[in-house]
Each structure stands twice: as C-alpha cells, then as structure tokens.
Design a protein around this nucleic acid. Structure first.
Lengths: 144, 144
DNA sequence: TTCAATTCATATTGACATACTAGGAAATGT
DNA sequence: ACATTTCCTAGTATGTCAATATGAATTGAA
C-alpha cells in the first residue's frame, strides 16, 4: 500500500520544473542534482510525463523540459495515476468496469470503494500549484 | 498502491468467522472452501490474527477459531494494519516519528499526510459489524 | 561542419516482496 | 489409540521495484 518512487519522483520533478523554469527549459541533470536522485532513473520517469504531454522536451545543448500547462491545471492525481498506473487499493477497481465474479456478494468491495473515493478525493484536490506553493513556503522558512 | 491478498483474505476470514460461528469454532478448512482460497495460506494469515488476539484457536477435533470480541469492536483498520504492516502511502509516515531529513522542506509530505488521514478515516470508520451486515445483505439479495 | 550537450530508447540486473506450496509436529476430543 | 484439527518452519516460483548501462538521435554553438 505504498506510492512507489516513480510516483514520488514524478511529483518532485514537476515541482522542480515549475520552480526552476526561468524562461527556458530545465535540464534533467540539474533536477537530479537538486533532488539527489539518479539522472538516468529520472530520464525514464520524465519520458512518461513527456509522452503523456505533461511536459515537452527540447533536445540538444540548452535543452531540457518545460511544463505544457499552468501548474494550477495539473492535479497530483493526474501525475500519480500516470506514473503509478492506478491508485485503486484493489485491482477490481482499476479500470472502468468491475468484472469480478464475486462483486455482487462482496462485502469488502464497499470498503474498497469508499477507500478509493477517499484517495481520489485527496489527490484530485491538490494541484501542482499547491505543491509549488508549499515547497516555496517551506524553503523560505528553512533558509531565513 | 494495492492492498495485498493477506489483508483482503484476513478481512474475508474475519467476516466468515463472524457469520459462520454457530456457538462453536469455525474450521479453516470450511473457510477455505467457502472463500475458495488455499487453506494452507489461510492458516498462515490467521496465525497473525491469533497472535494479535483477534481470534482464539481451539485445537483438535471440533476445533477451529472464534472471535474474541464483538464484531463492532473491530475496525477494518485494525485488521488491515496488522496484516499489511502499515497503510501509510509513504514509508516516512509509517511509524510514530518521521525522521526523514527532507521533511522540513518536503512539499509532497503535506500531500502524503492528507492522503494518510483520508485512508485512516475510512478504514477506522468501518467495523467488522458493518462488513458482516453488508455481506449478509448482499447474500440475501443474491439468493432470493 | 564539427563537436559537445542534451534527450531518447532499450536492455540488463540485483534485491526484495508476494503468494503461495509442502511437510510434519503438537494438541486434543472421542 | 486415533483421527482431526491447529501450529511451525522452510522452500519456491513469479513478478515488481529501483535502478544501472549502453548507445543512438538530435541540435545549438564554435
């Protein structure tokens, strides 16, 4: 019942890009250095974000990545669902339809559905803008 | 971000025992047959519930397991936390204290804390009694 | 036009967890 | 005594996670 590094790193990268884009693209190497994460691993993760259109890449020298939308338009749920695959606590709630043969008599399904709703309620309520604000506020307090 | 079979089976066993205790202990073999799960695997899981005092065992012929408390006194969270280890979405929220060196500057921690609270809010609100009621209601509808 | 800096793509790996299966020991009611 | 139950430990196949590794493709700048 854990969010994997993929999801956590993806959020941190999006936050990092949001904060460090000063009118030009942000390099993986710099993100890796700031976040203290292997740049090769980050490459793989950002490739997902790129293919999903959450960032766009610029190749060659002075290249890097930029956000494609305003931070307020991304939710944490969008980013986590993309990288984690699904946030559902049980696989029968993964897709659109539940084809579990036990579903009509499954008491625990009601519990899992409530849990699923609670999880979605949180992650779809928090935007990248929120995360960036929390990040910059925390940094301010820390470095004063 | 999935509940494992251990947690799911533990809940189903507790529900099964709650429903099928007719004044005497319920055998693993019968639970396994009803739930269509390997009895050997259920043995391992119920051993955790036994050691935690959630059920008590009676050995020998006509032996089996009985609940030690009223169904209303168990929450789903108690059973899941025991079998899953922890329901926290990130490991830095696992124990009592958070000793992550990034915590003071970690924006995502706020998200994980909200998520953790939401998860706990659901699982600690649903009791075994609720689950048993949902189960018996579902069975009624199904078999009429 | 060459070169260095960057992203892009794919394969491999080690460690670990999951979801069991297997075999037999211990206890106990009849 | 014996059959029935739980109890205990070990083994195992499979898959996932979290990287690491290697090199190709692209492109701005000298």
């Amino acid at each position: 019942m854990k969010i994997s590094t993929k999801g956590r790193y993806a959020l941190r990268m999006m936050i990092d890009i949001g904060i460090n884009d000063k009118g030009g693209p942000v390099r993986i190497k710099d993100i890796a250095k700031r976040q203290k994460i292997s740049d090769k691993y980050l490459e793989q993760i950002i490739s997902m974000l790129n293919k999903a259109g959450f960032v766009r890449s610029i190749r060659g020298p002075q290249g890097g990545y930029r956000l494609t939308m305003k931070p307020s338009e991304y939710t944490a749920g969008m980013i986590l669902r993309l990288t984690e695959g699904s946030l559902a606590p049980v696989s029968c709630l993964d897709g659109e339809v539940n084809d579990c043969p036990r579903q009509s008599t499954c008491a625990t399904l009601k519990l899992w559905t409530r849990l699923n709703d609670a999880i979605n309620g949180v992650v779809d309520d928090v935007t990248l803008e929120d995360l960036i604000n929390w990040q910059t506020q925390a940094a301010d307090i820390y470095y004063i």
